[in-house]
Design a protein around this nucleic acid. Sequence first.
DNA 1: ACAAAAGTGTTCGCTTTACACCCATGT
DNA 2: ACATGGGTGTAAAGCGAACACTTTTGT
Lengths: 230, 230
Amino acid sequence: MLHHQNINIAVDAIVIAYKEQQLFILLIQQKYGIYKGSWSLPGGFVLDGESLSGAVQRELKEEAGIKVNYLEQLYTFGDDVTRDPRGQVVSVAYFALVNPSKFKLQANTDAQDAQWFPANDLPSLAFDHAKIIDKAIERIKGKLMYQPIGFDLLNKEFAFSDLENLYKTILGKNIDRRNFRKKIMSFEILEETDKIQQIGSGRPAKMYRFKKSKYRQLEKEGFHFEIKFA
Amino acid sequence: MLHHQNINIAVDAIVIAYKEQQLFILLIQQKYGIYKGSWSLPGGFVLDGESLSGAVQRELKEEAGIKVNYLEQLYTFGDDVTRDPRGQVVSVAYFALVNPSKFKLQANTDAQDAQWFPANDLPSLAFDHAKIIDKAIERIKGKLMYQPIGFDLLNKEFAFSDLENLYKTILGKNIDRRNFRKKIMSFEILEETDKIQQIGSGRPAKMYRFKKSKYRQLEKEGFHFEIKFA
DNA sequence: ACAAAAGTGTTCGCTTTACACCCATGT
DNA sequence: ACATGGGTGTAAAGCGAACACTTTTGT
């Protein structure tokens, strides 16, 4: 070490999934220590020579056997020097999105202690993880309005109403179906598939795909995804 | 230390000032090491028991004798494991704004090696600091549109045209004076003083003050500062 | 009187909002 | 035939964009 420091550096991940009009967060049950038995965010110490995002991906694989499709740095928590009772730990939090295909956790890995919890019904959490989750939820709410991250929470093919419900769920308010559809459609970033969804009763829905390449191209041309609501 | 890690944690600060239609960034000349003589952002290792923002403030005081009026975490750089050639260092970058009263650096402190550089004419920088500055400039450009941070770069009392020029400078484009004034005034967050500014020729300008308390109150009521341009 | 910067309103077009009925399917 | 969710258009209001002359001072 360059300079002697009695501080550790860790990463934590807030992994978010969406299913049946609910947001879920991935938590891990602590096996040892004073927080034994309580739930916490997946994460751990960064290894020597390892990058921060690399550490996140490794921990997610080790602790939950999961690979995410969206990963972004959220915030670094280090202003509360006593956030970890064992010693000074600075934690770089990342926020991640997964689509429903990742929802069933493989029990074959180390992941026996990993579980999804509804975001609005979390158990009590170790460390300052409740605060970290709050910040992540704030971030996703904000981002939803000006970046097409909702698609990372849906299957590759989805009904329009799925997107609509996702927005309703995350923002916690009703949106006008007609205006919402008009807006999204005007961006021309959705591709209609030839499939239709048939579940339960009601008229079957056309399935759409998010055209990521089209979006990236529009972005380069100066286009900004942005949604406004009443 | 809880866990043996061969990684250090540091903070860096991007301190931004505005004067005469230019943005300036505070840099420090390196005294030792392989980057000796080249310029870098103020910053350094976090001390045991010290908070991250505390470390930033301490370094700014030590290295430049400066106290900032706006400080916000920018990003944590730790994905490039070799960003510091001496060893693995994760750096939490903060971005800070100061008003013109801080512009003259006291030469009595350690600050002999501190200097302001125009943001568009920087010397070559140590480490990955050029990249960090880019990110900070991006952030300030974005924030200017939806948060009233411009006021932190001006004196407490300022002419309206100062605000206008600040926006023109940072965004790098012309703005419509009438529309801009109309917009800002509609927020009712400025207070007219009884002073007038008289410099050189031309009609003297009324001086304004930013009503921070009024802004905070509006914010609580759900108001969002937001400016759009052509 | 002229140069220099401050101050001020109106019109036009686009975007946002509010709002309700028909369609396709299963039971 | 009815229940369920999918799919669609239009009018009014509000906001952003474009645009030029008058005022106050110094020289």
